[in-house]
Amino acid sequence: MTSPALAVTGLTVRYEGAERRALDEVGLVVAPGEILGILGPTGAGKSTLLQCLSGVIPHHEDNAAMRGEIEVFGRPLGDFAGLSEITETVGLVMQDPEVQLVNTVVREELVWGMENRGIPVPEIEKRLRRATDLFDIGGLLDRFTHALSGGEKQRVVVASVFCLSPRIMLLDEPTSELDPAGTEGVMDAIRVLADEGVTVIVVEHKIEELAVYADRLVAMRAGRIEAAGTPREVLMGPAAPDRPQVLDIALRLRERGHWDAELPLSVPAAVAGWQAMTHDPQSDRNHS
């Protein structure tokens, strides 16, 4: 049996001086090639979880006490020789893109990490082309990183992590400053990578996108996992911090005895459900 990409048991973190645990006995198994979405209100522990999975806690954070087990492809994270070895497998995109932009020009930002790894030039060029296509940053390559908009910075940072070809990508609100089309572009790219076997964990507040793109969702609150399952299971349950509007509409119509079709997660699914329900000759004008 192949090992899961990530297996977490009893993960508990407390920041120095904090009133409660940031993470409290968190357990999680993520399969290779899966897109796992993490939901939850501010302060739920979502970013702390990503920092543990990437080794930032404990390697780069002195103020957090941590216990519990994290295994990456069957190997305990504690056995890795520090952050530099972990980052060969696990890539992290942090919430604030400015924190991890270190070069002045976008092209250098993308190439820098690969050069540090000693990746051969033809391979660097190949990955650069792929990153440019996937994240639609062809027009940005010669721009100064400081002069990019927030949304452009986010796409560059995700692309630069992709260039290191990690088997696991951890993304902390990678589309918060992107417009709807830009958000969809990044989500499409994530889907392509997952289909090629990359494991993706993405923290997002954009529930309507997550409902469609994630294979599974986890809802967190106050350091604990409150619900885990398919998007439909989690979003229908009480732990969902928010729901796609179409699901909300269908649930409210169902309460009134009006929605007996499958509960939808997207507009096309809602239209299909509606057509199934209203399919009688007299109502044809309603769905022509």
Binding site: D179, P180, E208, Q245, I249, V267, V271, N286, H287
Partner: peptide
């Protein structure tokens, strides 16, 4: 590249005018 709220997009697909919010759609 703007998309109206999901409730409005759904209602437009269904041919129901004047819907902006979840309440309107319901």
């Amino acid at each position: 590249n703007i998309r109206p709220p999901q409730a409005a997009v759904l209602a437009a697909e269904l041919g129901l005018p004047g819907v902006l919010t979840v309440d309107d759609a319901v």
